[in-house]
Design a protein around this nucleic acid. Sequence first.
RNA 1: GCGGGAAUUGCCAAGUCUGGUCAAAGGCGCUGGACUCAGAAUCCAGUCUCGCAGGAGUUCGGGGGUUCAAAUCCCCUUUCCCGCACCA
Length: 855
Amino acid sequence: MKYHKSFGMPAENAAIDHGANPEEWTDDNIKTMQKQQKAIGLSYDWNRLLYSHDPNYYKWDQWFFLKMLEKGIAYRQESYVNWCESCQTVLANEQAQGGKCWRCNSEVDQKFLTQWFLRIRDYAEELLDDLNNLEWPEKVKIMQRNWIGKSEGTIIKFSIVGQNRTIDIFTTRADTVFGVTFMVFAPEHPWIKEWVKGSEYEEEFNKFYDEIIRQDKFHRTDIDVEKKGMFIGKYAINPMTGEEVPLYIGNFVIYEYGAGAVMAVPGHDQRDFEFAQEYDIPIKVVIQPPDYELNAEKISRAYEEDGYLVNSGEFNGMENRMAIQSISERLEEMGMGFATINYKIRDWGISRQRYWGCPIPIIYCDECGVVPVPDEDLPVYLPKDVQFSGSGNPLETSVTFTKVKCPSCRKDARRETDTMDTFVDSSWYFFAFCDPPSMENTIPFSKEMVDYWGNIDFYCGGAEHSVLHLIYARFWTKVGRDLGLHSHDEPFQRLLTQGMINKVHPYCPKCERFAMKAEMNDKRCKFCDTDYILKSVKMSKSYGNTVNPGDIMDEYGADIARFFILFGASPESGLEWSETEIGSASNNIRNTFQFLAESPENRRTEKSIRDVLITYRLNKTCKEVTEFLEKLEIRNAVNSIMQFKKDLKTYKEEGVLLEIFEQCREKFIILLHPITPHLTEELWELIGKKGYLSLAAWPKWDDNILTDENDFKWKLINGVFDDIKSIQSILNKDKLSQITLIIADEWKFKLYEILMSLVDNTHNQGEIMNVIMKEADLKPRGKLISQIIARILKNIGKYSKVCLSTDEEFKFYSDIKQIIEKKYGCNLIISHEKNEKGNKKASQALPGKPAIIIE
RNA sequence: GCGGGAAUUGCCAAGUCUGGUCAAAGGCGCUGGACUCAGAAUCCAGUCUCGCAGGAGUUCGGGGGUUCAAAUCCCCUUUCCCGCACCA
């Protein structure tokens, strides 16, 4: 199954820039993309494709919208909204984080417009709570929690002097209400304009307002921006004290949060304190610290810690944390407030002034007002007779679209020309997979199917969607549930946030910026003429540092591209794209193919220990790879496969038992198949297998072979090779004439065994010696034993718990005698320590570590 | 300010959850060798320091601690990155 989020700006921009038809452009792109995805071997069910620009799909966006309208979840409101000048459209709050457009990164302005919203706020508490039931990265959960921004506090009603209304502000610090000495409103609060009209403050206000509103709200609320305000000639009454306090406006107050106004307590809030100092407003202390006394005249900063209440009437002496509740209760009795919860998250503005999206199914009639398009008239098709001039919404240019009869009174009316945010399309596609939507149905998908298949067990997406798609989809799921469409509370049970793909790109260290696409071939920064340096940055279209998967596949082939990606990236941390590394991936894979394709030349007929060990390695690899893949540790899986390749290669060179080699090769090919499917399929045929490899059974492993003993022997053989090699290199000997391996004496094995049984309980050498010295045959060697034990204890973890016996070890080396002799092209003598009395080196022998003499 | 992540041997980058098999995968670069008239490509080997015997020493941002044993666990600290931020 595959979903194409095919609505959106790129198609429309292509239409504006070079007159493309958005639909053809989109379809072309999808075709190319599918071709590439097929080429690289992605296993989608290509028969089940969803496209958001398919009327059969977007009909259901509209259906959802109408259902939400019915339920009061969708509503229309005039307010300040985020406006991206470059995209020529409104943005949701989530899409204007940090004051930048999520798509084009340009500055976002504020505009006062009438727009459609979805009441995601009504689900704030549930969105917050249910995060606890999700297996999501903590980072994403935290971002969502912050975004939802729950805070517990109190609504306090301040009457406006001379007016019959109250400003119902929200505060988390009701305990400081007796310390309120002024209030601050957001400049765009609609009451203000009214109040200053015709007053002495009007002129100054207008100046102030213009200045503030010209900056966007993201800039003016930047922590570094100077706090500014002005008195507007009005007063409010503190419900607890009855005192009149002056009203100010301030750039730091945000209209959308809380009531768009705050009570200011300069004694106990640093921000208010600074404002009060600037505008010469009195400061009142209402909380005293437990260990010293504040003096309102002398304090140099606000006291924000806990303490007990003073100057607070009946609440004097109360601990301030307790007082929050008491004061809230008192206010409620007075009818002047109540305890409440506030959320920072704003309702989701879904109107977009763009053509290439799902039309909002609404008709405006002069008689009937806002009229929803009746269900039976869905879908509202996106018209084709539109002009792309580059300014304004192209939909407005379609007469056939805009001119419509009112569904209720049949008089001339006009259609809503805004389309829906494309995040709407992607908020429910995952359920549509269970039962692809159809024009013929009355609901978008069947409850039975979605309940059966859903929710999504495992979802993989970018962390950049933390407070976009990932929160919208959760909201939509809850709404769907409440509409009775399915029974799931959450869309995605487990989430993995994949990393970015990075690539080096020209960067100006002075301007601290990367070159844009148009400048990427320049040598110097176009602003300051500094030489560009190369620095790694995430791939993006705006930088133009993307790689075309088609080119990579043309040059290296699909399998090498896959191998490089899977080996180079851990899903979470992403990938550094580099030409040299893909080249070496290419070598690696070609090499592997060659190795697997060629039959071994060097064959044996007699079974040897090497066959046992390579079988052990094979089983171990099967187990490791399977487990790594299950944990999605793909890089580790590939690593394990490649490690085995090395071992198998050595085995092949040393000489093989054909049957064993074939077995290893076959399983190796299967293990590699998910990584490089095409090449392994080819190999499968080459080694004479019938049928598709992709249908072959995944290799099992035999736990009976994965024994400590085999593990020990594997280490033994490699240990001896390593040791010989290292001695050889120290001695600078190119050619060896003879190697002697001297196996440790019987008593050392006994000692080793006793020692290993003791170290679980103690690492005290004295204690250990006491036990060992009880053995009559060991006692005479006390001094040597003490040295040996000290050496082993020093790094006990490096010594294996198990060991063989003298004879077994002797036999083991005899078994691999030929291999060693062949490998080093010399004679090998295997001897026992007791037969090497005069040899100084011989005494070094330990279980699992024979003394080695090379000549 | 709050929250999250990171710092590894020339470079990139694994390892950290679950301490020992870690002087630490893999790649790049570099060095040597094979092949070759030569180069490219490919293959093999080496790549912390010292050592003519398998050893020793010093390493995983810095400091301290836990432990027989620390890249890995705990505390402190520095630097960098990211998200949120005058949130009332």
